[in-house]
């Protein structure tokens, strides 16, 4: 099964709506243990992507992912900008000269998440977006290897992300701004984990309803 980049405008739109709908709640999370700018940062990047939406859908996956990465890198700023920039640039590189089928995507996403770990000098359990990205990548690869339906796969990944974000609540932050609070970071969900989950859910929903082979 292959999906065309033409789906991207719809995905970007769905992400924009998901972040907008949860803006206040996520900002409260980031104000509690961060500096409160995370949603605004992401939205700056999403707006930039929306402005490129039409042209983006016409490129091939490797190029488009690279382009999304560069756009996020130069518009989002903050920790999340460099991390999402790194994620997408790496995915783009991984897809270069590949057939963009599910196994290739799953492998590229996994490589992207590895590059985020490297850039952030972080790993699972440190109360960051990685606590969503790592299980999501894992789930995607597991499902890609197993022969389950696309709908099942999307449900699995979505669920992995949800479990991941909830798990950050009990974690002590050891990376990012929240780490400065020490014990005071306990009991709060990480804002960056939450938006990663929201975006994954939005992407999955668009693909699920896109009429792609199930």
């Amino acid at each position: 099964m292959q999906i065309s980049p033409e789906i991207l405008p719809r995905i970007i739109q769905a992400i924009a709506e998901a972040i907008e709908k949860n803006a206040e709640a996520v900002t409260q999370l980031d104000q509690a243990i961060g500096d409160g700018d995370h949603v605004v940062n992401l939205q700056r990047g999403i707006h930039a992507l929306q402005a490129q939406s039409a042209e983006i859908g016409q490129l091939d996956w490797a190029v488009v992912m690279q382009k999304i990465g560069m756009t996020l890198m130069s518009t989002v700023g903050g920790a999340s900008g460099s991390l999402y920039g790194t994620l997408f640039v790496t995915i783009g590189k991984a897809l270069r000269d590949k057939t963009a089928d599910l196994p290739a995507f799953a492998a590229a996403f996994a490589q992207g998440v590895e590059s985020v770990k490297l850039r952030g000098k972080a790993d699972a359990g440190e109360k960051t977006m990685l606590d969503v990205l790592i299980p999501a990548a894992q789930s995607l690869q597991n499902s890609a290897d197993a022969s389950i339906s696309l709908q099942e796969l999307l449900a699995d990944v979505t669920h992995a992300a949800e479990t991941g974000v909830e798990a950050t609540r009990k974690m002590l932050a050891t990376k990012g701004r929240a780490s400065f609070l020490g014990e005071r970071s306990l009991g709060h969900i990480d804002a960056g984990a939450k938006t990663a989950q929201l975006m994954i859910a939005a992407i999955a929903a668009v693909i699920a309803s896109s009429g792609a082979p199930t």
Binding site: G36, R44, M73, S74, T75, V76, G77, G78, G81, S82
Partner: peptide
């Protein structure tokens, strides 16, 4: 200069 309280970008 980045946005308010937000690191600037590599470009």
């Amino acid at each position: 200069p980045g946005q308010i309280f937000t690191s600037p970008t590599p470009d």
